[in-house]
Design a protein around this nucleic acid. Structure first.
Length: 267
DNA sequence: TATCTTGTTAATCG
DNA sequence: ACGATTAACAAGAT
C-alpha cells in the first residue's frame, strides 16, 4: 500500500479497529525491517496500549502509551488484522493483541517496522524529515514551497522531505492533470501552472482515497481497493490514446523511474 | 534467464 | 552545497 490513498485508508481502518487494544506479543521473522534489535523492539512495545493510529506520507503511525509503532510498507504488501487461524504463511512481523487478533505485516520486498519513543517522532531519521502531507498542501503553500527550488518537477514531488505521500504510481496522473511534463524545471513554472499543480495533486489522489485505495492493494481484511485500473488516466497506458487529444501515451525514462505521459498535453 | 516494479538511503560525479 | 545518476537492499511476477 505504497502511497497516500492506501496509507490513509489503512490508517483509518487500523484506528477504528485497534484503538484501546494492548500489545501482547510480537513475532519478527525479518529482523532487518526493524530499527532496533528484536529484543529491544519487543521490550519497547510489549504491553503498550494503542491510543490512536494516523499517518504521515507513506508512514503509518500508531501512537501507544509506550511510544510509536511506525510502519512503512515499502513497495507493497499486506497489512492485515485477523485471527490466529487465518495467519498467512508470508509474514514479516506479527503483533498479537489482547483480544486475540493479530496485526500481520508482509511487504513483498523492503519495508520498515520501527519504534520511536513518545517524544521521538521528530528525531526519527525518516519520519522526522517528512514534508507536509500532500493533501494538506494548498495553492498558496505550494507556491511558497516551490519558490527557489531547482531541479525537475518529478523529483520534487517524489521527495518525501518536500511533500509527503506521492509515489511513482499516482504521479503519472497528477502530472497529466496539471498538464506538466515530469522533467519540467521547477524554476520555469509560472503562477498559473503552480495553481494547476496544486489542484492536480488533490484530483490525482482523492478518487483513490475515497474508494479505499488502489485495486492492487488490499485493506486490513484483505479486500481489494475500489480504485480500478480503468480509473487511471495515463499511468501504465503506453500506446493508448490520450483521453484529451488522442495522442499516443508514451513511456519515458525519468531518472531511475519510468513516467507515462501525453507528449502533446504535458509541456 | 532477464527485466520490470508502487520505496528509501547512500555513494558518487560534475 | 546541490542536482543528477546509480547501486543496494529483505522479493515476486512475467
Amino acid at each position: 500500500m505504497p502511497e497516500l490513498p492506501e496509507i490513509a485508508n489503512r490508517s483509518r481502518e487500523l484506528n477504528a479497529r485497534l484503538t484501546g487494544k494492548q500489545i501482547r506479543g510480537i513475532e519478527v521473522s525479518q529482523p532487518k525491517s526493524l530499527n532496533l534489535s528484536v529484543e529491544d523492539f519487543t521490550a519497547a512495545l510489549q504491553g503498550a496500549r494503542i491510543e490512536e493510529v494516523g499517518y504521515h506520507g507513506k508512514w503509518i503511525q500508531a501512537r501507544t502509551d509506550r511510544g510509536w509503532l511506525l510502519i512503512n510498507m515499502g513497495m507493497g504488501g499486506e497489512l492485515l488484522v485477523l485471527d490466529r487461524s487465518r495467519l498467512p504463511e508470508k509474514r514479516r512481523v506479527v503483533i498479537e493483541l489482547d483480544d486475540a487478533s493479530f496485526i500481520c505485516i508482509n511487504f513483498w520486498w523492503f519495508g520498515y517496522v520501527h519504534y520511536a519513543p513518545a517524544d521521538g517522532l521528530g528525531r526519527h531519521p525518516m519520519v522526522g524529515k517528512l514534508g507536509p502531507n500532500a493533501l494538506e498542501v494548498g495553492p498558496a503553500e505550494l507556491h511558497q514551497m516551490l519558490n527557489g527550488q531547482r531541479g525537475s518537477l518529478k523529483a520534487f514531488l517524489l521527495d518525501q522531505s518536500k511533500i509527503a505521500g506521492i509515489g511513482n504510481a499516482y504521479i503519472h496522473d497528477i502530472l497529466f492533470l496539471a498538464r506538466l511534463h515530469p522533467l519540467r524545471k521547477i524554476d520555469s513554472l509560472c503562477h498559473e501552472e503552480v495553481d494547476r499543480l496544486a489542484q492536480a495533486i488533490q484530483d490525482g489522489l482523492c478518487p483513490s482515497l475515497e474508494k479505499g485505495g488502489g485495486f492492487y492493494e488490499v485493506d486490513i481484511d484483505g479486500q481489494k481497493g475500489g480504485f480500478t485500473a480503468a480509473e487511471i488516466i495515463v499511468g501504465y497506458r503506453e500506446g493508448q490514446p490520450c483521453p484529451v487529444c488522442g495522442t499516443s501515451i508514451q513511456k519515458i525514462k525519468t531518472g531511475s523511474t519510468a513516467s507515462f505521459i501525453c507528449p502533446q498535453c504535458q509541456v
